[in-house]
Computed example of a mutant assay.
Amino acid sequence: MNPVQATSNASRLRPAAVLRYASLDPLRQDAYLAVGLAAPASAIAVTVGSGRHPDALGWALLLGLHVPLAWRRRAPLPTLAIMIPLIAVYHQQDYNHSAPTAASMVVLYTVAVRNGPLRTAAVGCAVIALMMVLKIDHGMAGLAVSFQITGWIVSMLVLGGYIRVHRENAAAAVGRAERAERTREEEARRRVAEERLRIARDLHDLLAHSITLIGVQTSVAAHVLAADPGRLDRAAVAGALDDIAETCRTARGELRTTLEVLRDPGTPDARGPLPGLHGLADLARTAVGAQVRLTVTADEAPPAVGAAAYRIVQEALTNAVRHGGRDDLTVRVRVSEDDGALHVHVTDDGAGAGTATPGYGLVGMRERARSVGGTVTAGPREEGQGFEVTAVLPLGGTR
């Protein structure tokens, strides 16, 4: 194998080795670290530095002080507490003083990384004080060495504190990013739910109203056909069928604009202009099966409020026609503005509206009113016969 191939193979093996090491649990990583530090410390003990070569006791102390490093991340302070007496005895026996330096610095760094600034400062002061006591008998030379070692101790503690703050800031940034992502996801889900609810209300209002009108118009045509077959009123039948066709065309157009939102979710305003107070007159004219008396004294309302009022009146008319239970049904619709709010009042003199089982219609009316900050009350009239719907829709803040 030539040198170029050997270098290439080594460059491929190093990342793999790093990945394998990173995949180990912390205890095993620290155990390998202890062995890795003990090997050069043993070489230093017999080659360079001040002090005598270790004997049996020296080797036991030097190798023994590296063993607790395997638990440095799980229990940094106990690890330091075990290592300090071993290091102190090692130095007191005047063995090679450079050999345990790396292990000492690693455990001090770990203490700073794993503990707050106050505890780290207290540990640093204690270690420096102990080192001063050990060096006090060495005179000026010992004092100079003490300042040098103090610099290393402070440097390791500062480095560990910096890494701890950096990791905390990184973790906080990740936490903020995750919270922001969750907030965006929740907002997206909320918007989807609101849009689905809006589409459901629109479809209910549209289909319920249109189907009710078609049902009434079909009943009219059937009645004309069955009343006197010998004298068929072709004009009345044609008028009823034309009304049915017109209702179908109107429903189809409104259904198309509603479904555009589903086809193109990127354009929330694709549904076109919202119905408003200007559409109440046409709504009253198309209410087949009831005589509608409409009174509108309010000025033009904001689009959202006008649409809510329109849909509430539409649902109230649909319910009145569906559950009124009489041919000469009269529905009174009054829309007025008072005290900064739009007041919608719909009453009928039907016989069955008050006993109808509540369904999606009343729920939809309340949801529409709530969407603009308003309220809806619905129930049998106090006078006795008929049903009454009252809505209060604030105008302030929605213009």
Rank of each mutant, 00 (worst) to 15 (best):
C125W: 03
R182I: 06
E185R: 08
K135H: 06
I153L: 00
L197Q: 13
A180C: 04
W152I: 15
A172K: 01
G139S: 13
R198Y: 13
V154W: 00
L203C: 12
V133P: 08
E178P: 08
A129Q: 06
N115M: 00
I128A: 06
S146D: 01
V158A: 14
A188M: 12
R201V: 15
E195I: 10
R114W: 01
L206F: 00
A129T: 10
I149A: 03
R201W: 13
M132F: 11
L197S: 09
G175E: 10
M131S: 15
A121E: 09
A172T: 08
I136V: 06
V165L: 06
D205K: 00
I149P: 07
V127A: 01
G175L: 11
A170V: 05
G160S: 14
P117Y: 03
E178D: 10
V158F: 12
A193I: 15
A129R: 01
R179M: 11
L130R: 04
V145F: 06
I153P: 10
E168T: 04
A180R: 14
A170W: 07
A126E: 01
W152H: 09
S146W: 14
R176W: 10
I149Y: 06
H166D: 02
N115K: 00
L157S: 11
L157T: 08
A122I: 10
H204A: 13
R184G: 11
E186N: 07
N169P: 07
A173W: 04
G161A: 12
G151M: 15
G151E: 09
M132R: 10
L203E: 07
I136K: 02
P117E: 02
E194N: 05
L118W: 05
T150C: 02
A172Q: 11
G142A: 01
A170N: 10
L118P: 08
A170R: 05
R119C: 00
N169Q: 10
A188R: 15
R176H: 13
F147D: 05
A173K: 09
G139E: 14
V165Q: 12
A173M: 14
T120K: 00
E168V: 12
R164Y: 03
I136S: 00
C125F: 10
L157P: 08
H138F: 11
S210N: 11
T150S: 14
R179L: 11
